[in-house]
Amino acid sequence: MKKRVLFLCTHNSARSQMAQGLMNALLSENYEAFSAGTFATSINPFAIEVMKEIGIDISNQYSKNFDMYLNDEFDYVVTVCDNAKEGCPYFPGGKEQFHKKFEDPASFSGTKEEKLDKFREVRDKIKDWIVDFFRT
């Protein structure tokens, strides 16, 4: 049986969405990933673009508020930003809860290419952490 993982961040627009896509693409034999936010908005187009660059399509994912999962059970709940950790310090359906802070690429300002570079950097850090932490 696959373990269920919920990634939480503030807006469910970049970090948690990329984490969901990465886990479902790279570790789907053992895990099923979901994502949500404390104040859901929409997926950042830069997140979609940098994920597509590595062959992972998250364009069909959508931003969700964490309360839609309050009645669900998860083996792991991972907050990927400090705001989500503070806004949701305890998730009732989570067997284990972890915090792994990643920089918010959406808060970076610069040219389009500089923003994409920041999204790539954060994507790669999330990927490395997921593979290192969850690979069994």
Rank of each mutant, 00 (worst) to 15 (best):
N71W: 07
I56C: 02
Y76I: 11
E73R: 12
K85I: 01
K64L: 06
N71Y: 12
N83Q: 13
A84K: 02
D82T: 12
E86R: 14
S63G: 08
D67R: 15
F66M: 12
L70C: 00
V77E: 04
F74S: 04
V77G: 01
Y62I: 09
E73G: 03
E73I: 01
E73L: 06
S59K: 10
V77A: 05
D72G: 04
V80K: 07
M68R: 04
V77Y: 07
L70R: 10
N65D: 15
D75R: 02
E73V: 04
S63L: 07
C81P: 10
Y76H: 13
I56N: 03
C81V: 04
S59I: 07
Y69C: 05
Q61S: 14
A84G: 06
D72E: 15
Y62W: 11
C81W: 05
D57V: 04
T79W: 09
E73W: 01
A84F: 10
L70W: 00
V80S: 03
S59Q: 09
D82Y: 12
D72M: 14
Q61F: 15
A84Y: 11
F74P: 00
I56W: 05
D75V: 01
I56H: 03
V80I: 15
N83P: 00
D82H: 13
E73C: 05
G87Y: 00
G87Q: 05
A84M: 05
V78Q: 08
D67H: 13
Y76E: 09
Y69K: 02
Y62K: 15
E86S: 13
M68G: 04
N83H: 10
E86H: 06
V77W: 06
S59L: 11
S63W: 03
I58Q: 08
Y62G: 11
I56G: 01
N65V: 04
Y76L: 14
D67I: 08
Y69H: 05
V80G: 03
A84I: 05
